[in-house]
Nucleic acid binder design. Structure first.
Lengths: 147, 147
DNA sequence: GTCATTTATATCGCACACGACTGATTATCG
DNA sequence: CGATAATCAGTCGTGTGCGATATAAATGAC
């Protein structure tokens, strides 16, 4: 072990701390919208497709219902979504944007640009790095599910 | 917006979900050691340098004392470390590995190899990707601290 | 059609993670 | 030297995250 700390060579640690760093950059931007970072991700997902189920959202965000249910209740309390049981299948809860939730999308439009600026990289570099990280994630998920 | 979900192009989301994926791979390995993933990172840091302060550890892990203090108390309860006030500066708490904590390092030696295997990448690829993610983290941290 | 199984969401307990604040100690400056 | 500021760890409140479990509804086997 040289003078370089071993921890600083762990890719998992780089990913872990980069996640925290993203959070710190997002925080002041999302505070304006009254959202936390995971809540923002859920809203982005619903802006893309309204009327999703809890399970469907969980698959896209890689989150369990035990994480999503309280988060979605907070979004409902905040007035951004409604949660209603499906009449076709009473087990299913459908997530619908309120008018206020839809309006929030416009206020959130400037956020991605701020993040790109903060990254200090151009969109090509980011897209390439993003693809590599996704590929790594997929490999890890395959490994975790097979063991 | 094409058929590709916008969320799936966010690099922050890739990092966020890759972090979760790492956690899932680590979980069964760390369960054997009686550690959580953040506890493991703290132990790695202490194996590299015994006798660090809470603040020093926090700088390396990018964590606040409000996160570390409860985590370190759990490591102390588990018998892996001792927490003792410095006699030179009574404000400071020094973290020292117990004999059991030192022995744990040997049992943890197989962990990094398992993670590399699960990533499906060779060490050169990982080192390159790791460096890119660290550079991104540094850019984000600079941006967050300047604003 | 009834019972067992599966599915979808929710609940609970535990462990992060951070911001705001507190208390104790040390450093600094007039 | 003494008031003030800075530093360090800890506490508290809020919000994730997950595993284990619960509950209700739908499905399947017979």
């Amino acid at each position: 072990m040289s003078d370089q700390l071993k921890l600083d060579t762990f890719i998992c640690f780089a990913v872990y701390t980069a996640g925290h760093a993203f959070n710190r950059v997002y925080k002041p931007l999302l505070d304006e919208l009254g959202l936390t970072y995971p809540q923002y991700l859920a809203m982005v997902c619903l802006w893309e497709e309204d009327g999703q189920t809890v399970g469907g959202l969980g698959e896209k965000l890689f989150l369990e219902s035990s994480t999503l249910t309280p988060l979605l209740k907070r979004l409902e309390t905040a007035g951004y979504i409604r949660r209603e049981r499906s009449s076709k299948d009473e087990r299913v809860v459908l997530l619908r944007l309120t008018e206020e939730g839809k309006r929030l999308q416009e206020r959130a439009e400037t956020v991605p640009g701020c993040i790109i600026d903060a990254s200090g990289r151009d969109t090509d570099q980011l897209a390439r790095l993003q693809a590599e990280i996704v590929a790594l994630r997929e490999a890890l998920n395959r490994s975790a599910s097979s063991s």
